[in-house]
Design a protein around this nucleic acid. Sequence first.
DNA 1: TGTACATCAGTGAACGCGCGTTCACTGATGTAC
DNA 2: TGTACATCAGTGAACGCGCGTTCACTGATGTAC
Lengths: 218, 218
Amino acid sequence: VPTASRQAPAKRAYHHGDLRRALIQAAWRLVRDQGVDTLTLREVARKVGVTHAAPYHHFESREALLEVLADEAFAAMSDEMAEAAAGVTDPSERLFVVGRAYVDHARARPEHVQVMFRRYPGMKDQSPDSPGSRAFAHLFEAVLACQEAGLAPSGDPWQLALSAWSLVHGFVKLWADGPLDCIPAYAENFDTMRDHMLRTFGASWRALAQQERASAAR
Amino acid sequence: VPTASRQAPAKRAYHHGDLRRALIQAAWRLVRDQGVDTLTLREVARKVGVTHAAPYHHFESREALLEVLADEAFAAMSDEMAEAAAGVTDPSERLFVVGRAYVDHARARPEHVQVMFRRYPGMKDQSPDSPGSRAFAHLFEAVLACQEAGLAPSGDPWQLALSAWSLVHGFVKLWADGPLDCIPAYAENFDTMRDHMLRTFGASWRALAQQERASAAR
DNA sequence: TGTACATCAGTGAACGCGCGTTCACTGATGTAC
DNA sequence: TGTACATCAGTGAACGCGCGTTCACTGATGTAC
């Protein structure tokens, strides 16, 4: 068995080698360049250089492909959040780096954002250990750790976590969807805005927590 | 001139009376029911009971209709923010009601959200007194007032305003795009989550501002 | 090592569909006199 | 008040297009013996 045929599956007459992977990659490029809405299976096939019916051997439908993309995107973001948190012991700092990972991943891969946050049929059937749930779990745990260390306000941690999530998510979407590009004070200042926002948010939580303690001691 | 023909333009053979308005209304209903992406001029015309070519007498293209919708949506949201702020003198409370107006409007009119935050060609040509700019201005002014009253952290007000905007915007999008519906802790608790988020945010800012003053006095 | 055969992963034609947009048209409306 | 005429706001046919999906097919691959 000549291994050459395995190492160079680039241009094969019939069998592609890893068409499934190639279709996914092409889909990512297309989503990045022109958005999810206009993604068509036929164009994906065209990009890969394969007949428009070929993708159906790998994906049941356009929607099925998009769900695979969403899982990939959530998994990648979740990994980056976990990696960012690894080794960071100070809870406030951990919340910061986790939030920054969320924001930065979205900034670096706008096509992921397009695919992750999109209403689709069967969205409610998310298992609790789906990639999407795992990503949120990282954020939640970082918030919880802050709270337990007295570095965040008291109260229902779920409510706090939603505040943190809203903050980073809104930041991401405002950049992704365009509004900020039109405002001179913001355009081109992504990093500055991101750091100020995250740092002020953390500092505010700590200040409120401290105030709570002070007034409890009084 | 019989005024009856003016008062009952409901079913006219040819001239509709106010087709432009009717098309816009139908478009809102369609966007609400099935999203912007799938909105077609032909379906809008069909809903109104008019030939598919008729809309071209009122809108240059599908895109032109969508831009009209976006302006309407921003104007409506801006009005609600202004109305909410009217008469509220305490700056913290004003920021709260303005933020709540943003969130509530988006919740009540999800079709507005779909149309407002959407990349489109020529988005950068927003005039500074476009409805969209005006909506942001309400938020910015509320933030600025807090800062001047010592109820928000010091620093660049634009950066603070972006934090506030991100917070409410993220909240809105997380509900609109579905993720929260899948999380039992959140689903069905919109109002509770909204108030907690906005109140904690305000309280955190005040706590940080106070802390800043304390450490400056030391 | 060689061969028969099942399975896999492509092809290409075809189906039906709805879309945006254009165009020549015509019925209804409003205005000048 | 009545009439001629310009303008407005619809109609309906047509153009070209690309889409999702199905289907019978066939070339390539891998496995049992």
